[in-house]
Design a protein around this nucleic acid. Structure first.
Lengths: 191, 191
DNA sequence: AGCCAAACGGACCATCGGTCCGGATATGTT
DNA sequence: AACATATCCGGACCGATGGTCCGTTTGGCT
């Protein structure tokens, strides 16, 4: 899925270099410093290469984000409970939110940048649709009702890079996670 | 508060013209068509004027947004119940969300544009702080607990222009409002 | 009328995302 | 090893955008 036929060695090398460069710029400088010129320069690559690989700025950020989330995705689909299939919906949901929040807390800057770059197609992006589908399912299972889809959107909406940065303090780095989980429990555990 | 001392007549006229122009561009064309060049041109005004009045693109969008929300803000602070003070927290909250959602549904494009322009200072913006404070208070009153502040953020996070556009269909224009209210009730009405 | 602070306008600038194409190169074949 | 060619590369180039600057105009006051 990541390659079509045989992919040339330099292409692979360059893609990695670009992703690493973007990552470094993202963490070492502000998210607004990640211009494609800069990324290309730091990667030691021409600008055209960045675009050929990732299509656009949004594409680059998305690729980076998917890279970060790939592990969680795998665990959710094929891994052992409580993340993977088999555990009761409530526990799966909490485990899932825990994992997602952990990633989000560690990549708040990337999240902000991605949010700004992807204007409206965010809700049509396959990655978003996957998370939303998973959440929807768990919510509907744990608390049958017509608006599971909306609640899933609402939960995901909280994963906003800027909000996370605004709420997270160094001395209580997982406060955001706890809040999200409490919110989810409040939504599920009503009679 | 909107004026310092005596404001020159042309200044007032131009500010209005700029706001109108921005509004027109926003509704008649996509939100991404609202470049400051275009706004200035349509307003019959120089570009510098736009910046002198509003400081930046973000400032312009913010001003427009505040204009739209001013009425609700007034009603919430000084108006009659259930929006204004006097009604029980739960009803005030639902009335408030109803009002806010009505505005949001009618200005989804503006909301998107504003969300993209205001990167991280969104959560420090006085307008946002006001809404957040109001919501926080009502939530804390209706369902005492430590995370009223977070739940307020979560409820506001749902007012994302793109999400609203994604969820709203012409034949059920207030579906978003209902969903938000149901979510709020789910958060408050647990024992 | 005449003064001056306030406001104006639009040329100007730096930067950005994105395109394009002549040249380089990896890879499979003979 | 030499070749052929599809693939990939680099970076000059472009249009648009947000934002600045400063010479000029204008509104308000005496």
């Amino acid at each position: 899925m990541t390659e079509q036929r045989t992919e040339r060695a330099d292409a692979v090398r360059n893609r990695r270099a670009v992703l690493r460069a973007a990552e470094r710029l993202l963490t070492e400088h502000g998210g607004d410093q990640v211009s494609l010129d800069r990324v290309a320069a730091l990667a030691g690559v021409g600008k055209g290469t960045v675009f050929r690989r990732f299509g656009s700025r949004a594409g680059l950020l998305q690729a980076l984000l998917e890279e970060k989330a790939q592990e969680l995705r795998e665990a959710v689909v094929h891994g052992p409970p409580p993340l993977g299939p088999g555990a009761p919906a409530r526990e799966r949901l909490l485990a899932f939110l825990d994992g997602l929040a952990l990633i989000a807390e560690g990549n708040a800057t990337l999240l902000s940048a991605h949010g700004q770059a992807c204007a409206e197609d965010k809700y049509r992006d396959p990655s978003y649709l996957f998370w939303h589908g998973h959440l929807s399912g768990l919510i509907a299972e744990g608390r049958p009702g017509p608006d599971a889809g909306f609640l899933a959107h609402a939960l995901l909406a909280v994963f906003d890079g800027n909000l996370i940065r605004h709420l997270t303090s160094p001395d209580d780095p997982r406060r955001f996670t706890r809040s999200v989980q409490q919110m989810a429990m409040a939504l599920l555990d009503r009679d």
